[in-house]
Nucleic acid binder design. Structure first.
Length: 545
RNA sequence: GCCCCUGUAGUUCAAUGGAUAGAACGGCGGAUUCCUAAUCCGCAAAUGGAGGUUCGAUUCCUCCCAGGGGCACCA
């Protein structure tokens, strides 16, 4: 395997073991002017070797000087070892990328992983916040798949419980208002959004006055079904627009109907982890984590969300996943300890259940903060956002910011300056390369794959190759940090290196067809990696811009 | 009050304990008789505050200040 960084790392490690040393060190790309790679091995190792960092660095460097992948090995204070790679090392990497038709990713063990995200009450349209979560989950899923994991993308639909009852009642009120009952009002905690009026109009056309001023259990279940079905369909349209595919949509209601909830209750009761108090049924959360006990069954006999969620996670475990990641908004962080407690109560090992929290999205229109509330129905929907700035920009924007960072999305800025979004920078690099291959034809320069690579000699060319070589690293960074922004950062860096190379080096020179071909090969390898990276983001890779 | 997240250039974001804290937008100044100037090159500009840990701190620890989010028999 020829990931250059790994190659350097292994060589250093070999030398260390010859010196009877063993510890964790890094091989990195240093700031400009220090070479291609550097290692802090001597700095970290000084302690272990009981000598000065500089002395150890000299000792290690001496043993590496004759390796043929290095052009030079130098020591710099306070103890870094800097490497310049030989041309041969670069050419080998480029050759491999082209032979493999993309960067040859070393696959991980094919563990079964589930990402659950975008889960929502089907009580209204997706918000901008959902959009962030959907993109984070989708990109992580794509990257994990690329790395060889067996990934299931799943959305949980909260189609049971009090919220749905309120939704049904709210829709019923809207429906009757259309029929002239102006004295009826949306329930206190009901849903006031305009979208219910639209659904009510459609409903009115279909059923006429059947349910006018009539509220009974049959009416309620009809309105529940009708409301959920319609809202769910709208949500799925948004998912389609955003290019988010799911493998499974999981219904909360089904957990009650198929007895999973009852089964979980039985298990917990049998183990003695639940008790009754004040007419409610409680889980002994405090026995497992630092948190108060929580209610599973309310004193009116209905289930809490917590209970069905435990059942859901029990179901996930039963399906044989090795690891699951729930992606939640930060407002749910208080929910984590009690879920951990529930997992332990069920005897599920720690490490199975993981949560990725993301911070909120603040919307701004110019100077004005846009307040959002689903209940009050005052918010910018995901759909509106996509219509304003476009799917590619929405996806890229959400992916490029660390989930843990509060982000401010200025609608006017995104709209007015959409061309300055980094997504276009990366896409432009892709389009430029496509254009090169078009131009090559008209200039009668033939592209011979994997030939003339030895003619590459410019630092700008090597910079591109070095970056191409780091693609796999970038994917592993995404995996390790669970942040899609490691991928967007990588692509921007690659695009930057390519644009610089393009400006400095004339690719298509009819007077020098062999050098042209070498550079076309470099462009081709870049194209492959850009295309792969953009596809993981589900952002389009246009051939012309 | 307690818990979680975040304070970095004018703005929006980066930076597994490393060297000169990076981009982008905005500002200023340059580059196209040749492949897309949606690009490139240069200049000005930042770690909220105080301690501590060590060869070295934006990063880890403590305290303070500021912002966001939690602390339900809601989800």
């Amino acid at each position: 395997m020829l990931l250059l960084r790994r190659l350097v790392h292994d060589l250093v490690q070999k030398v260390l073991s010859e010196l009877d040393l063993s510890y964790h060190f890094e091989v990195e790309v240093p700031p400009e002017g220090f070479g291609d790679f550097s290692t802090n091995a001597a700095l970290v190792g000084a302690r272990h070797a009981k000598c000065r960092p500089m002395e150890l660095a000299e000792k290690i460097a001496e043993k590496l000087k004759n390796e043929d992948i290095f052009h030079s090995v130098e020591v710099a204070k306070p103890g870094f070892i800097n490497f310049r790679l030989s041309k041969k090392a670069y050419v080998d990497v480029l050759r491999q990328i082209i032979v493999n038709e993309a960067y040859p990713i070393r696959k991980s063990e094919p563990l079964r992983i589930q990402f659950e995200y975008g889960s929502a009450n089907p009580t209204g349209p997706f918000t901008v916040g959902h959009g962030r979560q959907l993109v984070i989950g989708d990109v992580l899923s794509n990257v994990f798949r690329e790395l060889g994991y067996e990934v299931t993308r799943e959305m949980y639909i909260n189609d049971a419980g009090r919220q749905i009852s309120l939704l049904a009642k709210s829709l019923w009120v809207r429906y009757n208002q259309l029929l002239g009952s102006q004295d009826l009002e949306i329930p206190e905690d009901g849903y006031r959004g305009e979208y219910l009026i639209d659904i009510a109009k459609k409903l009115l056309e279909e059923v006429g006055e059947t349910y006018k001023n009539r509220w009974d259990s049959e009416t309620e279940s009809f309105f529940k079904r009708y409301a959920v079905e319609n809202i769910l369909n709208n949500m799925k349209e948004d998912l389609c627009t955003l290019d988010c595919e799911f493998d499974v949509y999981f219904s909360e209601k089904s957990l009650i109907e198929d007895g999973t909830v009852q089964k979980v209750l039985d298990i917990l009761r049998e183990k003695g982890f639940i008790y009754e108090k004040d007419g409610a049924v409680w889980l002994r959360v405090s026995q497992f984590v630092e948190d108060d006990d929580k209610v599973l069954i309310k004193n009116d006999g209905s289930y809490t969300y917590f209970l069905t969620d435990i059942a859901y996670h029990f179901n996930k475990y039963s399906r044989g996943f090795h690891k699951i990641y729930d992606i939640w908004g930060s407002d749910h962080h208080g929910h984590i300890p009690r879920m951990v407690a529930a997992m332990r109560a069920l005897g599920i090992e720690d490490g199975f259940f993981n949560v990725i929290l993301h911070q909120f999205v603040t919307l701004k229109r110019g100077e004005e903060i846009v307040r959002m509330s689903t209940r009050a129905g005052e918010f910018v929907t995901l759909r509106q956002l996509i219509e304003e700035v476009g799917k590619d920009a929405v996806r890229y924007f959400f992916a490029m910011i660390d989930p843990n960072t509060h982000m401010v999305f200025d609608l006017e800025l995104a709209k007015a300056r959409s061309m300055d979004n980094p997504v276009y920078y990366v896409q432009y690099a892709h389009a430029r390369i496509c254009s090169l291959f078009e131009q090559a034809k008209s200039k009668s320069i033939t592209f011979n794959k994997n030939e003339d690579l030895d003619l590459l000699n410019d630092p700008a060319e090597f910079a591109v190759i070095r970056r191409l070589d780091m693609f796999e690293d970038a994917l592993h960074e995404v995996e390790k940090t669970l942040s899609p922004n490691k991928l967007t950062q990588y692509l921007e860096a690659l695009a930057y290196d390519f644009h610089s190379f393009y400006t400095k080096c004339l690719v298509l020179d009819p007077g020098n067809p062999r050098l042209s071909n070498a550079r076309l090969n470099l462009a081709y390898a870049t194209l492959l990696v850009l295309k792969k990276g953009l596809s993981l983001l589900r952002v389009s890779a246009p051939e012309r811009m």
